[in-house]
């Protein structure tokens, strides 16, 4: 199928190829800057929109103890992650033995491996398909910065160019212990999250100008 488009395609004029190329170029162009830690910007929105009472503690406990992971293993770090899941290291101690083939049922993405630009739109799509609240652990040197492939022509220099990352686990690849430590860090982070606004910071309508 030939497509007529104002952009001139040099290598192929098949619709599928052009579409793919366009998507990758768009993602690449929009990914120059790293996305900051979600703690810096996500909380604000949530605080304004969700009003709950002291179920905070229960919520955090439930969230941190049932981290189901989406599948994202583009390269060798995936092996260590599989080892983490296996009985010897036993990730099910943290309530995360279930791997979700569907991102709709996942809350955590462990990005175990090198990401190429060609794969980037798909990883971002998987991330967007995960329901809130969701977290990302960047595993390994490649996940953090592109690792040894950083200056390569086809490697994304760090997942935080594509999706917001909560915890970074260094190593090439990180040992399962390191990954488990990273997961525990994330659990601590989730534990601190407050869905409930701090009452003392809200204006009290009964006492004008004063806080409770």
């Amino acid at each position: 199928m030939e497509v007529s488009n104002d952009k001139e395609y040099i290598y192929s004029s098949t619709e599928l190829d052009c579409d793919e190329g366009r998507i990758i170029e768009e993602v690449k162009a929009g990914s120059r800057e790293s996305i900051p830690d979600p703690d810096a910007w996500l909380d604000e929105d949530l605080r304004r929109n969700i009003i709950l009472t002291s179920v905070d503690w229960v919520l955090d406990w439930a969230r941190r103890s049932s981290l189901w992971t989406a599948i994202c293993y583009p390269a060798c770090c995936g092996m260590e992650w599989m080892a983490t899941l296996s009985p010897r290291f036993d990730a099910s101690r943290f309530g995360m033995e279930i791997m979700r083939a569907s991102p709709r049922q996942a809350d955590l993405m462990i990005t175990a491996g090198t990401l190429t630009w060609k794969m980037a739109p798909n990883v971002r799509r998987i991330y967007h398909q995960m329901p809130e609240p969701k977290w990302v652990i960047a595993m390994g040197a490649c996940g953090i910065s592109g690792g040894i492939f950083r200056s390569s022509y086809n490697v994304v220099p760090g997942y935080n160019k594509i999706i917001p990352v909560d915890v970074y686990v260094p190593g090439c690849p990180p040992r399962p212990e390191a990954l488990i430590y990273g997961i525990q860090m994330l659990q601590k982070k989730i534990n601190k999250a407050k869905a409930v606004p701090d009452l003392s910071e809200l204006p009290n309508p009964l006492k004008k100008g004063k806080k409770v």
């Binding site: 395609y9 290598y11 192929s12 793919e20 190329g21 366009r22 170029e25 060609k118």
Partner: peptide, 21 residues
């Protein structure tokens, strides 16, 4: 004869010695 690894729109042929990002 079209690209197989890289995507449509990639500039140049990266394994050439004189190719620069």
């Amino acid at each position: 004869l079209k690209r197989i690894f890289l995507w449509e729109g990639f500039d140049g042929h990266p394994l050439r010695k004189d190719w620069n990002q």
